[in-house]
Amino acid sequence: MEKVLTIIAEYNPFHNGHKYHFQKSKEKTGIDKTLVIMSGNFVQRGEPAIIDYRSRAALAKKNGADLILKLPTFYSTASSDFFTFGAMKIIKEIKIPVILSFGAENKNKELITNIAEFLAFEEKKYYKKIRELMQDGMSMPRAREKIIVNEIPEAQKVLNGSNNILAIDYIKNAYKLKIKNIEYQIIKRIGADYHDNSVQNIMSASGIRNNIKKKDSAWKNSVPDNVRDKLINNELKDIKSLYKYIKYAVVKEGLDIKRYRGVIEGIEHKLITEIQKVNNYGELLDALLTKRYTETFLKRMLLSIFLGITKKEFGYIQSRFYPFLEIIDFTEKGQKIINLIQKNSRIPLIHSINRYPWKDYYTIDKSIDIYRNLELKAERFYSNI
């Protein structure tokens, strides 16, 4: 069966590094049909994307993507472990052979795979140690690193790279989900690191966003022309605008906010206290920040409150099949990928979250409503911030 080049991304925004990744992936694999699994309006760092997902998909299509499927908000706003789990679930359910291409700071596939195998097959042991170290006050990323390096000393070479972490989690979740028809292509990341704000031709997405927010035009040479035009002419979303909504939810719900994903270990008490003292989102983050809770963890927690993502619903959907996948955009080649998926899988592919083909895919499973309600809410909230 024909293989499809697959990329998992946020494109927040699409930049020259992403374009390079497309070009090298096609060159290395010899495949000219590309499926992209892309985040929606809210992303893994716990923020709104700077432009909406349909615009980002259109730009991805102009720059090499053939079919763009949406990674559901439940997963696109979660930690690396769940972000990658959600994306790999899509690969499992479309039932076509893929070559998953991802960027990494280190191209040592054997080492990355060894770490992924340890995390997949020693999961109970791993999470038990994670809990023990976090109870002693260690942050999740630091605890994760300590456990892995203790098991695989040479892992230190790759654990400092954020893209390496994603690569490890992709392969780990492929093992957990028992995905068979998958190969991997690692593309050495070039240019700025994920957290690097330095100005260069290949600049990190976070660096570009920070430059845009500071009204510094230095970012303009680091993106394709069509992306630059869109970013200049579009009203960009900013996480600071979420503050008033989060404050309202915390004040209204009080201790009941502990039902939301990420509100753990009594942090609701500190959140309720501090939100009465601060005046904006930045001050709230500063007040909550500790060695144990990273800024990104706190942003995801606050976003879960904003979007109403509860622990109960998040736990429920993890063990369920996808009730549908949303097609955001596609080319003529993308239509061939759609045909291939429909030939091999029974999963509904829909073009609109409001229109589900009930006659063809009747289901009484409540997951369809849970998924759809969150996606509708995310679109509505995004348009009003």
Results as ranks from 00 to 15, higher is better:
T290V: 07
N221G: 15
G315I: 04
L340Q: 08
L289P: 05
R228G: 07
L271P: 00
Y293T: 13
E235N: 12
V227Y: 07
G207W: 00
L231Q: 06
L307W: 06
T290Y: 08
T310L: 05
G207L: 00
N226H: 04
F306E: 03
K343Q: 09
K220A: 12
K240Q: 03
S222P: 09
V278A: 13
H269P: 10
I232D: 11
A218Q: 15
K244A: 00
L298R: 01
R228W: 13
S345Q: 05
L255H: 13
N210G: 10
M301F: 11
L307M: 03
E235L: 11
A287M: 01
I317C: 10
I272P: 08
K213S: 12
I232V: 09
V263A: 05
N211A: 11
K247M: 09
K291V: 12
F306P: 10
Y245K: 04
K237Q: 07
Q276E: 15
A287E: 04
N344A: 03
D286S: 14
N221V: 10
R259E: 07
K214H: 11
L340V: 01
L255D: 13
I338E: 04
E268G: 11
N211K: 12
I239H: 03
F330G: 03
F306C: 14
Y316G: 14
T290D: 04
K343R: 08
N234L: 14
K333R: 08
K270F: 08
I338K: 04
T294M: 13
I264E: 13
S304D: 07
L303Q: 04
K252T: 11
V263N: 03
E265V: 09
K311M: 07
R228A: 11
T331H: 05
T331K: 09
K312E: 06
A249H: 10
D238T: 12
Y293N: 11
K240L: 11
K312D: 06
L298T: 10
G308C: 08
K277L: 02
Y260E: 02
Y293G: 15
K312I: 02
D238N: 11
D329N: 14
K213R: 12
T273F: 14
R320Y: 06
A218M: 15
T310W: 04
N210S: 12
R259P: 05
K237W: 00
E313F: 10
L255I: 12
H269K: 15
I257S: 07
K220E: 15
R209F: 01
K214N: 10
I328G: 08
Q318Y: 00
L284V: 01
I257Q: 01
E274L: 05
I309L: 01
K291Q: 07
G262S: 06
I212N: 02
S222G: 09
F314W: 14
L284G: 06
L340E: 02
I239P: 05
R228H: 11
E253R: 10
Y316I: 15
N234D: 10
K270V: 03
L255W: 14
Q318D: 09
Q276D: 14
Y316Q: 09
T331V: 12
Y243Q: 00
R320T: 09
F321N: 15
K299V: 04
I317Y: 06
D286R: 00
R259S: 08
Y293W: 10
D286K: 10
V227N: 03
K258R: 12
L307C: 00
V251K: 02
Y322D: 05
T310N: 08
G282D: 07
A287I: 03
I246Y: 06
N211F: 07
L325S: 03
K220W: 13
G207N: 02
